[in-house]
Nucleic acid binder design. Structure first.
Lengths: 188, 188
DNA sequence: TCCGCCATGTAAGTTGTTACATGATTAG
DNA sequence: CTAATCATGTAACAACTTACATGGCGGA
């Protein structure tokens, strides 16, 4: 499963399950999400497999933490996965399915409100990514041409999100125009 | 679950599980996939729920077929779902995760080959959608401005795929250029 | 003292995949 | 006759979600 390798990869620096969850929520959420209830058992499994090891961190403040780090075997596994070529899974997109089936209602108004609702959601997400990019650009003088390798790859991933969301918005706009046009000619 | 409603929606015309599978593979595969092993039990569940009813079709040629059609209750359920507003699930994209974690290899060559491999896959899919669109445009004189409602919505869904794939390709091209640039400056 | 955040976990259920089983009919 | 396609299904597994349980610690 991909999550195993993603955890392995994020553990470039030692971290607890809770820390990793925060990374998902703040850094990589635009291409992968994970719940704590999935993270904790997966970390345990990886440790049993000797791809990770853990130690209980002395709790200065707050409750006990279990901090994981990768082993040599874990790194080998990660590298093998990274070298194993592109995997493009086919996406299931509920909103496209809804649109496709909307003729059952025979009401272009619903089609229009679905599209405008979608446009809004895409725009909100795009704003999120853009402000991430902006904060980064302003705080790191090396941005974007002189970034170190890790940040360079982060940037590629971020721009994937930007491109996708822009395309979604352009598609929604084109579709909204098409629906308007259709509604006018229906009246006539 | 969405598949239930999608089956319900596709059953605008009566069909067997096998027929529906073919629709997934040829018509809606670019936004939803389903296996027979999931379709058959789901149809049975929908029938038990009285959203569908079935009859055994007389087998003129070929083995027995079980043909399903929607009930009034099924149509009500479908309509409620269609009216329930946009659902945008967050997508998990393995290839973006790989890219993000590739610094672990410290080898831009692998990044480059991942990106070119992706570009190729996206291009192949785009070709598939474009030829679908082309066949359609050539066989239906009403295309694209005077399509009936059902086909109009199909077109919206198809164009969603085209926009997305085009954006993916543009992103891959930009990324490939960035990697090349970086490889040159590394040599120096 | 109570609330919110830190931190780890389990249980049950949903959704989807892969592999297997079975048999009818048709085209070469 | 044999392979491909039509047609329906079950079993086991994998990935992920939602809800629940437990407790420590810090600040208002």
């Amino acid at each position: 499963m991909s999550l195993e390798y993603i955890l392995l990869g994020l553990l470039r620096e030692a971290a607890s399950g809770y820390d990793l969850k925060k990374i998902f929520d703040t850094q990589v959420g635009h291409f992968w999400a994970a719940e704590l209830s999935q993270i904790y058992p997966t970390l345990k499994r990886l440790e049993k497999q000797h791809w990770l090891r853990s130690h209980h961190a002395a709790a200065k403040r707050g409750p006990r933490r279990i901090v994981y780090e990768t082993t040599a075997a874990g790194n080998r596994a990660l590298r093998a996965w990274l070298e194993s070529g592109p995997e493009v899974s086919d996406e299931r997109q509920v909103f496209v399915a809804k649109l496709y089936l909307l003729p059952a209602l025979d009401d272009l108004g619903v089609t229009l409100s679905l599209l405008t609702g979608l446009r809004q959601r895409f725009a909100t997400r795009l704003d999120g990514l853009r402000s991430l990019e902006k904060m980064w650009a302003e705080s790191d003088p090396r941005y974007p041409a002189d970034l170190p390798t890790v940040e360079f790859h982060k940037l590629l991933a971020l721009r994937k999100g930007l491109f996708s969301l822009q395309a979604h918005i352009e598609w929604a706009d084109e579709s909204i125009r098409a629906v308007h046009k259709r509604m006018k000619s229906e009246q006539a």
